[in-house]
């Protein structure tokens, strides 16, 4: 048994993913630039992908890696649509500060 998981316990991967996910949450909460918020969402998606791959190796089951492919496909589609929306917002109000997007406030 000479895989990585006999040397590094699975708990370390869980903690690494939790830290990366929390950094993404902090980015979403503390920044107001819409593009940086998008990048923080990408960090969160990647932390979940890493944990899925780790458990796929841990349980010796390829289904986890297939799920990572589907998450990557959804992330690519989401980024394309989201960046188009950001470009449209910039064209209309000339800023991407999310605190200017309060027109729906009653």
């Amino acid at each position: 048994m000479n895989t990585i998981l006999s040397i590094v316990p699975i708990q370390y991967y869980i903690i690494l993913s939790a830290i990366l996910f929390s950094i993404g949450v902090m980015g979403v909460l503390t920044r107001s630039n819409a593009i940086i918020i998008f990048m923080s969402v990408e960090i969160m998606l990647n932390s979940v992908n890493l944990l899925l791959a780790a458990f796929s190796t841990y349980h010796n089951d390829a289904a986890g890696q297939i799920f990572v492919f589907f998450i990557m496909a959804v992330a690519a589609a989401e980024v394309a649509v989201g960046l188009a929306i950001i470009v449209m917002i910039y064209r209309n109000i000339n800023t991407i500060d999310i605190y200017n997007l309060n027109k729906l406030k009653g």
């Binding site: 869980i14 939790a18 841990y58 349980h59």
Partner: peptide, 27 residues
């Protein structure tokens, strides 16, 4: 400051809960 505190609290709770896992067996 509020965002950093909220994210840090989430990280603390996640690590405290998830580091207790020790019953899963590898293949």
């Amino acid at each position: 400051f509020a965002g950093a505190i909220a994210g840090g609290s989430l990280m603390l709770v996640l690590i405290a809960v998830l580091s207790k896992i020790n019953s899963i067996q590898p293949a």
